[in-house]
Amino acid sequence: MKLKEIVKKLKLSVRCGENNLDRDVTGGCASDMLSNVIAYSKKGDVWTTIQIHANIVAVAVLKELAAIIIVQGREPADDTIQKAKEENIPLLVSKLSAYEVVGKMYELGVGRN
């Protein structure tokens, strides 16, 4: 599924990476522990988290993730947005909880990669 479809269907706000929404999402992961994401996420996953600091971008780059969805209405820190722009990682924001976001993505057919 294209990232832009997820953005549209889940009504996500795009904080950066508007030009990278055409990429394919092949699965997802949800965790707030960075090393857990490093261990279990797969290339092409969209990552759902409440973390907002710049290290999330480093993890997304490391694992070649498709995008990061920051949930519960949290906002990425300024340096996180800056780094995400440099690294071409779309940062998306939702008011919903991780549970709801993941549930909706499963409904759309985005399952485990």
Binding site: M33, Q51, N55
Partner: peptide
């Protein structure tokens, strides 16, 4: 709180 300390660094 920042998401470090999963206890997976060395195992990773």
């Amino acid at each position: 709180e920042m998401g470090f300390g999963a206890g997976m660094g060395l195992p990773n």
